[in-house]
Amino acid sequence: MPPPALLIPGGRGQLGTDLVGRRGPAGLVHAPGSSELDITDSGVLTDAVDSFADAAGDAGLRPVVVNLAAYTAVDDAESDPVTAERVNTRGPAALAEVCRKRGLPLLHVSTDYVFGGDASVPYEPDDETGPRSVYGRTKLAGERAVLAAHPRAWVVRTAWLYGVGGTNFVSTMARLCLERETVSVAEDQVGSPTWTADLAGGLLELADSVARRDEPAARVLHCTNTGSANRCEFARAVFEEMGADPERVRPVATADVPRPAPRPSFSVLSDRKWTEGGLTPLRPWREALRAAFERHGAAWGVR
């Protein structure tokens, strides 16, 4: 069977770029950015989904919507909760309703920030949530709204994303490696660094499964590169890939580098439901980081 047609709101960011790149030229893919498709504008949203569904039908393709549109400025959300709620909660709810009416399955990408961060073992999808930031609360509300609005919607939580072409932890550490002699990074935040190219592959596999109606039973799934690290270990791995001494990264406590939005101290996500649904686990995070630098090292300043 041919791959499904994809509509990817928020598709101009790091993950969207990799999703389109992994998919290649086959079939129908439309990946508009927020300036092209504002999911909070119901009229524009309905027209976009209708046009996509009609084009997929004309081409004899199975349509799937993958929502990447989100307000991801975690610290800014603390002082701008109205915009965060509009984009992270009301927009996905509206998209899910439009997809339900047109009979299109929806994959909605969410975040580890929906958890409180007080666990000591990887979070399962049905574990108790408890977001500590405006960003986390609005993303959790968006998850719930999507699942309530559409019986063929799936939430995919991920964490600690990095990719080429945007600002993220890897690009920031790579820049600081070139600019500073030492860098202080928290060692009391633990998570799973995830390369957007690998996550894109997982989302494409899920989209194909859903389009074939061979989807996982669980409607909330976790997908990250496997394994875990604290932020300091992650930064030191970036320095190693830059060819620099990892000891230039100095461990500190989160309290020593305060930010407006609190971060979960532990947000490792279990992929058990993902693999039980017949989906391929992503490779270990350190292996993925090495592969990312092999592909994009020049963009991050490797000499």
Rank of each mutant, 00 (worst) to 15 (best):
G91R: 01
P92A: 09
A94R: 06
A94K: 08
L95T: 05
L95C: 13
L95E: 07
A96Q: 06
E97G: 11
V98N: 10
C99F: 07
R100H: 15
R100S: 08
K101N: 11
R102A: 15
G103V: 14
L104Y: 05
L104D: 09
P105N: 11
L107Y: 04
H108G: 00
H108Y: 13
V109L: 15
V109C: 06
S110W: 04
S110T: 05
T111Y: 01
T111F: 00
D112V: 03
D112N: 09
D112W: 04
D112F: 03
D112A: 11
Y113V: 04
V114L: 05
F115L: 07
F115Y: 15
G116Q: 01
G116T: 05
G117V: 01
S120I: 09
S120Q: 13
V121I: 12
P122I: 08
Y123N: 02
Y123C: 02
E124H: 08
D126R: 06
E128N: 07
E128W: 00
T129Y: 01
T129L: 03
G130R: 00
P131G: 08
G136S: 05
G136K: 00
T138A: 11
T138M: 03
K139R: 13
L140G: 00
G142C: 12
G142A: 10
E143Y: 00
E143G: 08
A145H: 09
V146F: 03
V146I: 13
A149L: 04
P151R: 14
R152Y: 06
R152D: 15
R152F: 03
R152M: 10
A153T: 07
W154S: 11
W154D: 08
R157A: 01
T158R: 03
T158N: 01
A159H: 06
W160S: 04
L161D: 06
Y162G: 03
G163H: 09
V164K: 07
V164N: 10
G165D: 13
G165A: 14
G166E: 09
G166I: 04
G166T: 09
T167L: 12
N168I: 02
N168Y: 07
F169V: 11
F169H: 11
S171P: 03
T172G: 02
M173L: 14
M173C: 13
R175V: 02
L176S: 05
L176W: 08
C177V: 06
C177E: 14
L178T: 14
E181L: 06
V183E: 09
V183Y: 06
S184Q: 13
S184G: 08
D188H: 02
Q189A: 09
Q189T: 11
V190F: 02
S192W: 01
S192G: 02
P193W: 02
P193D: 07
T194N: 07
W195R: 01
T196G: 10
T196H: 04
A197S: 14
A197F: 03
D198P: 03
L199T: 08
L199Q: 12
L199P: 01
L199G: 03
G201S: 14
L203I: 13
L204G: 05
E205S: 10
E205I: 11
A207T: 13
A207V: 13
D208Y: 03
D208F: 06
D208E: 15
V210Q: 02
D214N: 15
A217R: 15
A217K: 14
A217T: 15
A218P: 03
